[in-house]
């Protein structure tokens, strides 16, 4: 069963001069954990706002849970949970007051759906009399998630829930999402962090309002067209520039402590190590590497730029 459908959705701002979402189509199955992966300004928030009935598309149509996002917006508003990107709750209300307020607005009580938020709320409970403004980023995010879940939505939209949050809190947040999945809630989450892509069941890579690719993370990685190698040596920043100047190297990107490279011609790999040692590098290490989603994104983004 399909829970979310986008059919050729386009959205522009400022009288059409800024294209935020460019002819986007995809669908999300019921109970799926779907990730919208892309940088700032890629169109993620616009897509979420159209699906949550906050914006109308210029063209195309979308349905959530079978309801049209424009015509049946009231039905959708009853059924979905939404956590906007810059959502910061009511800073001057306490944790408990925030949650009670949102529960009441959604016509429910904390008690009624407690089983759903229990895992998350127990971590917040020691601070329930603390004002939301005095919580850390990670805690705020948990509270916001509780508020979005309090009415047991069928579809949950989380717009960049982990932006600006440290690696540990991010990890915890994704574990919470996985647990939520067991309740059968369809979850759409957007993130600029490519490393979070593999935590989703299916992802759409998005850039400049266009979908670059859409599939399971494994399939997207499998479709990476060439063998990828990682190179390491004693002088990484010089190596980066030098590799880019080599004719046989098709692409070269820094990835943490390695540089990821692909070749125009596979046979050249044999000669590379000698060439680098001759150029004065030491501790040269070259190995075949499994591409990451970020490798795929960079490759797709560049081919999109070159295609235009």
């Amino acid at each position: 069963m399909t829970d979310v459908v986008l059919d050729h959705i386009t959205k522009t701002y400022e009288k059409g001069s800024v294209v935020a979402v460019d002819d986007v189509s995809f669908s999300v199955e019921k109970g799926e954990l779907f990730g919208l992966i892309g940088p700032d300004g890629a169109g993620k928030s616009s897509i979420f706002r159209m699906l949550t009935t906050l914006l109308k598309p210029d063209s195309g149509f979308a349905t959530v849970n079978g309801s049209d996002t424009v015509k049946d917006y009231r039905d959708i508003r009853k059924k979905v949970g939404y956590m906007p990107g810059r959502f910061s709750l009511y800073q001057d209300l306490t944790v408990e007051e925030n949650l009670t307020f949102f529960a009441t607005v959604f016509n429910t009580t904390i008690h009624e759906n407690y089983d759903l938020i229990k895992d998350i709320y127990v971590q917040l409970e020691p601070f329930k009399d603390r004002r939301a403004g005095k919580l850390s980023g990670g805690m705020k995010q948990k509270l916001a998630l509780c508020c979005a879940l309090i009415h047991r939505p069928t579809v949950l939209f989380l717009d960049e829930p982990t932006t600006g949050v440290d690696a540990v809190s991010r990890k915890e947040f994704w574990e919470m999402l996985k647990r939520l999945k067991t309740h059968g809630i369809t979850i759409l989450v957007s993130t600029p962090y490519m490393d979070e892509a593999t935590l989703c069941e299916r992802i759409a890579l998005i850039q400049g309002g266009k979908i670059l690719s859409i599939d399971t993370p494994e399939e997207i990685i499998r479709r990476f067209p060439k063998p990828l190698y990682s190179v390491r040596c004693n002088e990484m920043s010089r190596l980066l520039k030098e590799l880019r100047s080599f004719a046989e190297i098709e692409s070269c990107n820094g990835f943490g402590d390695y540089h990821h490279i692909t070749f125009h011609n596979e046979a050249e790999i044999e000669k590379l190590k000698d060439r680098l040692i001759k150029a004065g590098y030491s501790e040269v290490e070259i190995r075949i590497e499994e591409p990451t989603v970020e490798d795929c994104f960079i490759r797709l983004m560049k081919s999109l730029d070159n295609g235009e």
Binding site: G38, P39, D40, A42, E160, T163, G164, P192, M194, Q207, L240, N253, G254, E294, F297, I298, M301, K302
Partner: peptide, 13 residues
Amino acid sequence: GGVDPVTRRQFWD
């Protein structure tokens, strides 16, 4: 934060 992976690398350059 929030910058695309290609531009992020250009930034580090």
